[in-house]
Amino acid sequence: MNQPIKQSGRHDDIMTYFSETEKAIQASHVLAADIDRAAELCISSLRNGGKIIFCGNGGSAADAQHLAAELMGRFLIDRNPLPALSLTVDTSALTAIGNDYGFEKVFSRQLRGLAQKNDVVFGLSTSGNSANVVEAFETARSLGLATIGLTGRGGGKMEPLSDVLIAVPHDKTNHIQEVHIAVGHLICAFIEAELCQTKP
C-alpha cells in the first residue's frame, strides 16, 4: 500500500525559487530584439557554410555542450545535422593547452586551429568576465568572426567584444543560467524554423 508523502516543510522555498526564476524570465523580455539578432547571425552563418562554436566554463560549459548538441542532433524536428561544436569537450586539448599556455588560452587556441570564415563564436559567461571566453572573443575579432555573448547584467568585459550581447538583467548565477538555456533553446528553434521551413 502506498504511503502518503510527508510534507518536508520546503514548499514555500520551492515556490519562492520558482517565483524568482519567473521574474528573471519576465525581466528578460527586453532582450527580444537581441535574441532575434543572434538568431539571424547564426542563420546567416549556417547558410553561408559556417558553423556555430560555443564556449563557457562550469555550468556554462554544460550549456555550451547542450546547445551544440541540439543543433548537431535534433531539437524540435527531424532534419539534417547543423554544424555546431563546443570547445569544452576535448579534455586532452583543454589540459594540454591549459598546462602549456595557461587556462585563459584553452578556447582561443582551439579557435585558431578550428575556426573558418563565416563561423560564429557563441560565448556563455554569467559575469561576462571569464578570461578564457573574453580571450576567445578577442581572437574571434582578429579572425573576422562574429561573436554572440550570453551573460548576466551589464555584460562585463564581453560587452564591447560582442556583435550581439544578450545580457540577462539579473545578478544571481543560477537564475541567469536558467534564462541562458531558455534563450539558447529559443535560438535553436528559430534556426530550425528558418532553415527547415517549420514553425518554432
Results as ranks from 00 to 15, higher is better:
residue 141 R to A: 15
residue 80 N to D: 01
residue 162 S to F: 08
residue 13 D to F: 06
residue 140 A to D: 09
residue 51 K to E: 03
residue 187 I to A: 00
residue 77 I to S: 12
residue 188 C to P: 01
residue 63 D to N: 05
residue 50 G to V: 13
residue 86 S to Y: 02
residue 12 D to G: 02
residue 118 N to T: 10
residue 187 I to F: 03
residue 12 D to Y: 07
residue 175 H to F: 13
residue 193 A to I: 07
residue 46 L to N: 07
residue 187 I to C: 07
residue 24 A to F: 10
residue 176 I to L: 08
residue 140 A to Y: 09
residue 22 E to I: 13
residue 85 L to S: 01
residue 115 A to C: 12
residue 169 P to T: 12
residue 195 L to H: 06
residue 39 A to K: 00
residue 109 R to T: 13
residue 140 A to Q: 12
residue 174 N to S: 14
residue 169 P to C: 11
residue 65 Q to Y: 04
residue 5 I to P: 03
residue 50 G to W: 06
residue 118 N to F: 08
residue 104 E to C: 02
residue 47 R to M: 13
residue 163 D to K: 03
residue 120 V to S: 07
residue 100 D to H: 10
residue 85 L to C: 14
residue 148 I to S: 05
residue 44 S to Y: 07
residue 77 I to E: 10
residue 35 I to S: 02
residue 83 P to E: 00
residue 99 N to R: 10
residue 123 G to Y: 07
residue 33 A to K: 11
residue 114 L to N: 02
residue 57 N to L: 08
residue 58 G to R: 03
residue 69 A to Q: 11
residue 20 E to I: 14
residue 18 F to Q: 00
residue 177 Q to R: 03
residue 7 Q to G: 09
residue 107 F to A: 04
residue 22 E to A: 14
residue 4 P to N: 13
residue 23 K to M: 08
residue 58 G to F: 10
residue 152 G to M: 11
residue 149 G to Y: 01
residue 191 I to G: 02
residue 29 H to G: 08
residue 153 R to N: 13
residue 190 F to M: 15
residue 135 E to G: 00
residue 23 K to R: 15
residue 114 L to Y: 02
residue 12 D to F: 02
residue 196 C to P: 10
residue 174 N to Q: 15
residue 112 R to A: 12
residue 102 G to S: 11
residue 82 L to I: 12
residue 2 N to P: 09
residue 160 P to E: 03
residue 105 K to Q: 14
residue 1 M to I: 11
residue 132 N to Y: 04
residue 126 T to W: 05
residue 149 G to C: 03
residue 11 H to P: 06
residue 84 A to G: 03
residue 118 N to H: 15
residue 177 Q to F: 05
residue 170 H to S: 12
residue 131 A to F: 04
residue 123 G to F: 10
residue 75 F to I: 06
residue 136 A to E: 10
residue 75 F to C: 00
residue 159 E to N: 08
residue 60 S to I: 01
residue 186 L to Q: 10
residue 89 V to N: 01
